[in-house]
Amino acid sequence: GKKITDLRVIDLKSELKRRNLDITGVKTVLISRLKQAIEEEGGDPDNIEL
Rank of each mutant, 00 (worst) to 15 (best):
K35Q: 10
K3M: 07
K3H: 07
L12I: 11
S14L: 14
R8W: 02
G1S: 14
G1E: 14
D46R: 08
K27L: 01
D11M: 12
R33N: 05
S14A: 11
I48G: 04
K13T: 11
I10C: 12
D46H: 11
R8F: 08
D22T: 06
R19L: 02
L21F: 05
S14Y: 10
I4R: 01
V26D: 15
V9G: 05
T5F: 11
K35C: 08
N47V: 10
G43C: 10
E15L: 11
K27M: 07
I38H: 01
G1Y: 15
K27R: 06
S14P: 01
T5I: 14
E15P: 00
V29Y: 04
G42I: 01
D46Q: 12
K27W: 07
L50H: 15
Q36L: 14
S14E: 13
E41G: 09
I10E: 12
T5C: 12
S14D: 15
I10M: 14
E41R: 03
L50Y: 01
Q36P: 02
T24W: 07
R8G: 09
S32C: 06
I4E: 03
V29N: 12
L50C: 12
L7V: 01
R19C: 00
L30K: 06
E49M: 07
L16G: 01
E40V: 13
N47S: 10
I38A: 01
L12Q: 00
N20Q: 13
P45E: 07
G43M: 11
R19P: 02
R8C: 03
L16I: 00
L12C: 04
I31M: 15
Q36I: 07
L30Q: 05
N20I: 00
K17P: 00
I38N: 00
I4S: 04
I38K: 02
R8A: 11
L34H: 03
T28W: 11
D11N: 04
T24K: 15
S32E: 15
L50A: 15
E39S: 13
E39G: 09
I38Y: 05
E15W: 00
D22Y: 02
K2H: 14
S14H: 13
E49S: 12
Q36G: 08
E15T: 00
L7P: 01
N47L: 09
E41V: 05
T24E: 12
L16R: 00
G43H: 10
L7H: 01
T5Y: 12
L12P: 02
D22N: 09
E39A: 12
T28C: 15
N47Q: 10
K17V: 11
E41D: 09
D22A: 09
L12N: 08
P45Q: 04
I38W: 03
K27P: 09
S32M: 15
K2T: 09
G1F: 15
G42W: 02
K35L: 11
G43E: 07
I23H: 15
L50V: 12
R19I: 00
L30G: 04
D44R: 07
L50K: 01
N20L: 08
D6V: 03
T5S: 14
L12R: 00
E49Y: 14
K3F: 06
D46F: 11
E39C: 09
L16E: 03
S32K: 11
L21K: 10
K2E: 06
R19G: 00
L7E: 07
K27Y: 14
K2D: 05
V9L: 09
E15D: 00
D11P: 02
D22F: 00
G1K: 15
K35W: 04
K17D: 13
K2R: 05
T24H: 02
G1V: 15
G42T: 06
T5D: 12
R19E: 02
P45Y: 09
I48T: 13
E49G: 09
V9D: 11
R8Q: 04
K27N: 07
L21Y: 07
G42R: 08
I31F: 08
T5L: 09
K17T: 04
G1R: 01
K13D: 01
L12H: 00
L34S: 03
I38G: 00
I23L: 12
D6K: 10
I38P: 05
K35V: 09
T5W: 10
D6I: 02
K17Q: 15
D44L: 05
N20K: 12
S14V: 14
N47E: 10
L30V: 03
D6L: 06
L12S: 01
R8S: 14
S14N: 05
T24C: 15
E40C: 11
E15I: 00
I4T: 03
G42C: 08
E39R: 15
K17W: 10
G43Q: 11
K35E: 06
K2M: 13
E41P: 01
P45V: 12
E49D: 12
R19Y: 01
R33L: 01
K17A: 12
I4Q: 03
D22K: 07
I4K: 03
I48K: 02
L30R: 03
D44G: 03
T5P: 06
T5V: 13
S14M: 13
E40P: 00
I31G: 05
I31D: 10
L21R: 07
K2Q: 09
G1T: 05
L12D: 02
N47R: 12
I31L: 12
L12G: 01
L12K: 00
D44F: 04
E49R: 11
G43Y: 08
R19S: 01
K17R: 14
K27T: 12
I23M: 15
R19H: 02
L21N: 03
E40R: 14
P45W: 08
L50Q: 11
K2C: 11
V26N: 15
K17S: 13
D6T: 10
S32P: 04
V26F: 14
L16C: 04
I48S: 08
L34Y: 02
G42L: 05
I10F: 05
D22L: 06
K17N: 10
N20H: 04
R33Q: 01
L34F: 03
R18V: 07
L16V: 02
G42K: 10
K17H: 04
L21E: 06
P45L: 09
E40M: 14
R33I: 03
L16F: 00
D11S: 01
L34I: 01
L12W: 01
L30I: 04
R19F: 01
K27D: 09
E40D: 05
I31A: 14
N20M: 09
S14C: 07
L30Y: 01
K35S: 11
G43K: 10
D6A: 09
L7W: 09
D22R: 06
K2L: 09
K13S: 03
D22S: 11
G43F: 04
R18W: 15
D11C: 01
N47F: 12
E40F: 12
E39P: 00
P45N: 05
L30D: 08
T28H: 14
D11G: 01
I38E: 03
I23G: 10
